[in-house]
Design a protein around this nucleic acid. Structure first.
Lengths: 152, 152
DNA sequence: TATTGTTATACTCTATAACTATA
DNA sequence: TATAGTTATAGAGTATAACAATA
């Protein structure tokens, strides 16, 4: 079943990708939890750092149903992190923007994620990191089925 | 702020890791959802493919509170995928094993994940994949804070 | 006393279906 | 008619605190 060539087996490659992914998720979950946030809320604050998207656009970014986004924004708004604003062009559209508090928390989270991820990044060589960056960018350019926007 | 050396900035590296991680999670979520499973249940079946762990061990694998595992196993048991068994050595301990149905579904899921991940794997060179495997293994050997067991 | 697992409770997250308002 | 967003509802997932059984 296995061969002695250099290319890793599909199985070990898939396993490595999954392990790496879970390691990253654990870090993100922990950083978010330290601020009583979910990973989804953390991603939301990342998205809103340089955008003022509609509810529908947020649903696309996060690959969620729009009804899920309603609750997500409700909870973020209740905590004073984001605000709803009506679109001037289309009265059906609700735009979401960060409050100063949300922007500040988002910046702090980005910094804490960088620090926490150092434990992972420091185990990789420059070449390995470059490979991961190449792969990540390739996925963005031509997403596998769904949009893969992240922007922590 | 930025320099012109080869090593990627911490920020872009962290972003690439996060993007890659979310891309993998989206694939896993989709494959699991096609069988009405969560990613956690998918991971559970992966863990049970070659182990018969205690509730506490599962909590460690998945980095969950034990009370969360109780519900997780309740739902899996209700679907006939796993079964509780008492330990002969220690009457406090409950061991979890797959049913034939759970084992079969676990194997099928592993295969489907491999197929679905091809869209990601195929975008990477052999060297890049080897780098990811190196990093994943380094994380397992010396986990960053918590256990990083996965075994899809 | 310490550990294993469960229960009670409360919250977040998510989807589906039905709805309102606007285009 | 079509689209944007919400509401109602249901269920999964998660944690904290308190508990029973066993070591």
């Amino acid at each position: 079943m296995s061969s002695e060539i250099d290319r890793p087996t599909t199985s070990s490659t898939v396993d490595a990708l999954a392990k790496l992914s879970f390691a990253v998720q654990i870090v993100l979950t922990r950083v978010a939890a330290e601020h009583d946030l979910s990973v989804t809320q953390l991603r939301l604050l990342g998205i809103l750092r340089d955008r003022t998207p509609s509810m529908a656009a947020i649903a696309d970014y996060l690959a969620l149903d729009r009804s899920s986004v309603t609750g997500l924004i409700d909870r973020a708004e209740r905590r004073g992190l984001v605000a709803r604003r009506s679109s001037a062009e289309d009265a059906r559209v609700t735009l979401i923007e960060t409050t100063p508090a949300g922007l500040s928390l988002g910046s702090q989270l980005a910094h804490e994620v960088s620090v926490a991820m150092a434990a992972i990044v420091n185990k990789a060589s420059d070449d390995d990191l470059a490979g991961i960056a190449r792969l990540a960018n390739a996925l963005i350019d031509e997403p596998a089925g769904r949009a893969v926007a992240s922007s922590i």
